[in-house]
Structures are given as C-alpha cells and as structure tokens.
Simulated scan of single mutants.
Amino acid sequence: MADTTNDVGGIAGDRLRSFVERIERLEEEKKGLQDDIKDVYAEAKGTGFDVKIIRQIIRLRKQAKEERQEQEELLELYKAALGMD
C-alpha cells in the first residue's frame, strides 16, 4: 500500500501544502480588508476629516489607558522642556 501523506525527506507534503494554502487564503482576505480600510479612510477624508488624526486615534484606542496617560504625560514634559507650551 502506498503512503498517502506524500512524505519527502521526512516532511509531510500534503500537510505542508494545507498550511501554505490556508496562509495564502488568509493573506488574500487580509489584502481585501486592507483595501476596505483604505476605502474608509478615503471616505473619511472626502467628508473633511483629517486622516492622520484618525490614524492616531485608532492607535491610541488600542493602548491601555495607563499606557496612553503615561505617553501623554511624557509628551507634555518633553514639550515643556523644549519651550513648546
């Protein structure tokens, strides 16, 4: 009986192919989502919103409140040290 796992050099070819194909499908989905996000940013810009600020807000919302507060305090401290107040 032949080995159906398609082993080559100790590597299960069918299993490897399955992983590669799954990753390729997910990469394609990711590209589609990235295109959708780009479209939303373009729509926001078209209605007058500043996209750079929206990106900053998105980044800040991902952070924990304490981390965000610490960064804001450091930013204020550095601005004061540079006379930017």
Results as ranks from 00 to 15, higher is better:
Met84Trp: 14
Val20Asn: 10
Leu33Trp: 10
Gly13Val: 06
Gln69Leu: 10
Glu66Arg: 02
Phe49Thr: 00
Ala42Gly: 08
Glu67Arg: 04
Lys45His: 04
Ala12Lys: 07
Lys31Gly: 05
Arg61Trp: 13
Ile54Gly: 01
Asp7Glu: 15
Glu67Pro: 02
Glu72Thr: 01
Lys31Met: 08
Asp35Tyr: 04
Gly9Phe: 13
Ile53Asn: 03
Glu24Trp: 11
Val20Phe: 09
Glu28Trp: 10
Gly46His: 02
Phe19Ser: 13
Ser18Met: 14
Leu26Arg: 12
Phe19Ala: 15
Gly13Tyr: 07
Met84Asn: 04
Ala12Ser: 04
Ala80Pro: 00
Val40Leu: 14
Gly9Pro: 01
Tyr78Trp: 13
Leu60Thr: 03
Glu76Trp: 03
Gly83Cys: 02
Asp85Phe: 04
Ala80Tyr: 08
Asp36Leu: 12
Asp3Lys: 00
Leu82Ala: 14
Glu76Ala: 06
Phe19Leu: 15
Glu67His: 10
Lys79Asp: 09
Tyr78Asp: 02
Gln71Leu: 08
Gln63Ala: 06
Arg25Gly: 12
Glu43Met: 07
Gly10Asp: 10
Val51Gln: 05
Met84Arg: 03
Leu77Cys: 08
Ala2Ile: 08
Asp50Cys: 07
Phe49Glu: 15
Arg61Thr: 04
Gly13Gln: 06
Asp7Phe: 15
Ile58Pro: 00
Arg68Met: 02
Ile11Glu: 10
Arg59Ala: 14
Leu60Tyr: 11
Gly32Gln: 13
Gln71Val: 07
Phe19Lys: 11
Ile11Lys: 06
Leu26Asp: 11
Asp7Val: 09
Arg61Leu: 11
Ile53His: 04
Val40His: 04
Ala44Asp: 06
Gly9Arg: 03
Arg22Met: 14
Ala80His: 12
Glu24His: 09
Asp39Gln: 11
Ile58Thr: 11
Ile37Gln: 06
Asp39Lys: 05
Ala44Gln: 02
Gly83Tyr: 06
Lys79Ser: 12
Ile58Gly: 03
Ala80Ile: 02
Leu82Cys: 13
Ile54Arg: 00
Gln63Pro: 03
Glu43Asn: 04
Val20Cys: 14
Lys45Pro: 00
Glu21Val: 06
Lys38Glu: 15
Glu29Gln: 14
Leu75Arg: 02
Ala81Met: 12
Lys62Ala: 14
Ala81Phe: 06
Ile54Trp: 00
Leu33Asp: 08
Ile57Gly: 02
Arg25Asn: 11
Lys31Glu: 09
Tyr78Ser: 03
Gly46Phe: 03
Ile23Glu: 14
Val51Pro: 01
Gly48Leu: 12
Glu73Asp: 13
Glu21Trp: 08
Glu66Tyr: 02
Thr4Ala: 15
Arg15Asp: 13
Glu73Gln: 07
Asp36Ile: 07
Arg68Val: 00
Asp35Asn: 09
Val8His: 11
Ala2Trp: 09
Lys62Pro: 03
Arg15Lys: 14
Ile53Leu: 15
Gly10Ile: 01
Gly32Thr: 02
Val8Cys: 08
Glu24Ala: 14
